[in-house]
Design a protein around this nucleic acid. Structure first.
Lengths: 200, 200
DNA sequence: CCAACAAAAGTGGCAGCGTCAACATCGGGA
DNA sequence: TCCCGATGTTGACGCTGCCACTTTTGTTGG
């Protein structure tokens, strides 16, 4: 039970990465509310003030987490993006990609959308958002050029599509829907988005 | 500058209501992050432990706030609901109602959707959600009976509509859109929802 | 009419948190 | 080699939520 001197080196090696990793696990397992710098330091085996060397703020750590999240999300979206498919399945695949990422990273997503970020981080975020939204926008603009989608500002049409997806994700995270249900209705959602609620 | 004995009565009168009111103001002005029971007590002129008499927890106070929010939201929706209108303007009016409430009560809305509520509060919330969603669902089911909307589970179609709206609201709250822009595109959103992204 | 009781408020204390300043240790470049 | 900057540690401060205990107050039954 004695702490076992352990002779851990004075310098950790890559504390910053270790903290981010540990933080992401805690975020996933216990939520952002029970994420404490001191607890993090304890888990990582460093003193309570050590994290301050790498993140000036708790918010700075959360920002870093969110930024990493955007990278992973962009990857997931790009992986789900198959330009060879026709419009409807192509959109459906993208939608599945987003919804899967969103439900599997609910707490992280909340952080990403949080609007509390410090100014410098906010810029990087904006760029990261574009990477994700861009995937959708390309599909829309593409299809528009082929006459498969109505005319109008493609940015706005993309926004509507994204809003529907994000709303569904938010409802899932909020507990109104369960994860399998939301994936099961993705097909229907895209169909409604493309063909409308009114009969043709 | 002296505190001025003030001879405030030992019993406040209606501390519970005073706390909720003060909390809502702070929530609106400084966000949930800077909402502290002690600060609240100070503002209200009572001791730091007095709030504990009326809310067993900080979460209990947040739950009460959220519950009141649901009531106000339901009122706003019912006020925006005009059954005399034809389908499209009727939906548009409801959408405006929701988006207006959402942008004007961003922090509160986040609280309402937070999924951290204690079990008893959660039940009341579910009922409150139904009051709001119900407004939309009635419109959809109504129109379906008149053949103005495609067949299919009205609950699911309502969900899609609600998701699009909520997504748009979330983006506004998140700072991607500004308040006037979102209201300006409400018409377009409903049109796309009803008639689809593809040409007819 | 008043004693007793319960509800409502106050007081003090605890542990945890984020942050800061001052000090310690280490490794790498002048 | 030495020294300096980056990294880690220690200790402290004020804040927070929460708890146990005491005090005040209004109400109510005898």
């Amino acid at each position: 039970m004695t702490p076992m001197p352990e002779s851990r080196p004075y310098h950790h090696g890559d504390l910053r990465a270790a903290l981010l990793e540990s933080a992401e696990r805690t975020l996933r397992e216990k939520g952002v509310g029970s994420l404490s710098l001191r607890e993090l330091a304890r888990e990582t085996g460093v003193s309570h003030a050590a994290p301050g060397r790498h993140f000036k703020d708790k918010q700075a750590l959360l920002d870093a987490l969110a930024l990493a999240g955007y990278d992973r999300m962009a990857e997931a979206m790009e992986a789900a993006h198959d330009p060879a498919l026709p419009l409807q399945p192509r959109l459906t695949a993208l939608a599945r990609g987003y919804l899967t990422f969103a439900t599997e990273n609910a707490e992280l997503l909340a952080l990403m959308y949080a609007r509390k970020h410090e100014p410098e981080a906010a810029e990087q975020m904006a760029a990261a958002v574009d990477r994700t939204v861009g995937a959708f926008e390309r599909v829309i603009a593409d299809a528009q050029r082929h006459g498969e989608i109505i005319e109008g500002d493609p940015e706005q049409l993309t926004l509507f599509t994204g809003a529907a997806l994000h709303g569904l994700a938010a409802m899932t995270v909020g507990g109104m829907l369960d994860e399998t249900a939301v994936l099961a209705m993705t097909d229907d959602l895209i169909r409604v988005l493309l063909h409308g609620l009114t009969p043709r």
